[in-house]
Structure formats: C-alpha cells, structure tokens
C-alpha cells in the first residue's frame, strides 16, 4: 500500500513537471492558430474556436522564411562540422600526447568559458571588421565555432580519456599507423561524444541572436533568430506569425535530435565494454 502511494506521488510529480515543460509550447501553438494575432486570450482552450493555419502560410510563403532557414542551416552545419573537426583532433592530442604546457592550455581553454558572451561582442566585431568578415556568414561561423570549441574540446577530451590506449595499440600492431588507429578505432568509439559535440555546435549557431545581430546587417543574410525578431515591430507585432515561426524553427532541431538519439543511447551502453 505504501509503495503504491509512493509510486502515485512520484507519478503526480512527473505529470506536473511534464505539464510545466509542454505548457509554453502548447501556448505558442495556441497563439499561432489565433487569426487575430492576439497574444492574450480569456479562453483556456488550446485550439481556439476560429483556429486557422493562416499564420503558417504567411510565414512560409509571404515572409523570407526559407532564406532565413537556409542561412541558419548553412551557419549551423558549418559551425558543427568545423567544431567537430577541430575539437575531435585537438582533444585527441590533449588526451593522448604529453605536450609541454598541456595543463595550462587546458585551463586556459576552460577559462574562456567564464566570460559572458556580451563581453566578447566588441572584440569580436573589431576582429571581424579587420578581417573583412563583418556582414558575411563566414564571420558568424568563425565566431560561433570559437565560442563552442572550448566546451567541445573538453567534452571530447573527457571521452577520449575513457577509451583505453591499448585499443589503439592493438590497431598499431594489427598494421595501422597512428592516424589510421585514430580514424578507424578511436573516432568510431567516440561517436557519442562526437554527436554531443555536433549537437552543441549546431545549436550554438542555430539559436544564437546577439552575435548575429552584431555581425550581420544585410536582410538576405539574416538567420532564423534575426528573421523572427524582424517580425516584431515597434507599434504592432504579429503574434500569430511570430508563434508559427517559432514552432517551425524548432522542427529541424527536433528532427536532428531524433536522428542522432540512437548514437547517444548507444554511447551509454558502450561504457560497459571492458576491452
């Protein structure tokens, strides 16, 4: 009886937490269906009486949504690919080789994470201006990669440290060279960390606003966060369009998570292997 009560209590708590998590999403969904572009409503209904998908149509076909999406995907994938490539190789060196000044280097990398992003805006802008990269997607990609790289490097290093060196040594004896052992043995085994690094870098680019706002000026280079922001104006905001846009923005990220979750789960079971 007591365990049943206990279990009931836990389930109630979990239901509450789930509701707290999905309520904002439902609310946005509800707003996106309102034809009047109204933010507030006196009704508690999730699907309003005169619900329509008009705002989705407006966002998809009347606003430059696809340009924002294309820019965001270019920036995010480029950041993710660059981030994974640099983090996986540099972390390997930091994990496997005895380098002079390795520990100070690791702590230096960690320290950069302690600065708030807004503090970096001015130096980043000046740097990009000197490089002639202001108002280019490449400039944004470089800025995002630089901010995501420390976390990615630490994650990758931590994961490499758990992969026994003897696996690579077995590869060396089997006939691989150092690079081959890294490519064919260590990297496939580090797949879960690679996925986390990829997702982190991807999101660093996909949902970022402040750096993009600072570096990008032309409307045809706007990423999704900038595009969404442009829907809001001083006197009137089209809330239904805004909400519809927000939900559409979330779709690629959710898809990516679903696609890569298999590797994340696999990573959890891989740790049980002894050799």
């Amino acid at each position: 009886m007591r365990t049943r009560l206990c279990s009931l209590g836990w389930h109630l708590l979990l239901i509450l937490l789930v509701m707290a998590t999905i309520y904002p999403v439902l609310q946005i969904f509800s707003i996106s269906l309102r034809p009047s572009n109204a933010l507030y409503s006196t009704s508690l209904r999730i699907i309003p009486e005169d619900a329509s998908f008009e705002s989705y149509r407006v966002i998809l076909f009347e606003k430059p949504f696809w340009i924002w999406m294309r820019n965001s995907l270019i920036v995010s994938f480029a950041t993710a690919i660059l981030g994974v490539t640099l983090a996986s190789t540099s972390a390997y060196a930091l994990s496997r080789f005895e380098l002079r000044g390795k520990n100070p280097m690791l702590f230096g990398i960690l320290t950069t994470q302690m600065f708030p992003a807004t503090m970096l805006l001015l130096p980043l802008y000046l740097l990009m201006r000197n490089l002639g990269l202001v108002n280019t997607l490449l400039g944004v990609v470089l800025a995002y990669t630089a901010t995501a790289l420390p976390f990615c490097t630490w994650t990758m290093k931590g994961y490499y440290d758990t992969i026994p060196r003897s696996l690579e040594e077995a590869g060396l004896i089997d006939g691989l060279d150092e690079l081959g052992a890294f490519w064919r043995i260590t990297l496939p085994l580090a797949a879960p960390a690679l996925v986390i690094t990829f997702l982190f870098s991807f999101l660093a680019g996909y949902a970022e606003f402040i750096v993009a706002r600072t570096l990008l000026v032309s409307k045809d280079l706007y990423t999704l966060p900038l595009g969404l922001e442009s829907l809001a104006s001083t006197f009137q905001t089209e809330w239904a369009n805004y909400a519809a846009g927000s939900l559409l923005v979330a779709i690629p990220v959710v898809a990516l998570f679903l696609l890569l979750s298999r590797y994340l789960v696999e990573g959890l079971t891989l740790g049980g292997v002894k050799g």
Binding site: P164, S166, L167, E169, A170, G171, L270, G275
Partner: peptide, 10 residues
C-alpha cells in the same frame, strides 16, 4: 600481441 585487457575493438 595479446593484451591484458584483451583490447578487442568494441
């Protein structure tokens, strides 16, 4: 070489 921890590719 045969390793102490087997070192099989997982």
């Amino acid at each position: 070489m045969v390793f102490q921890n087997y070192a099989l590719y997982p």
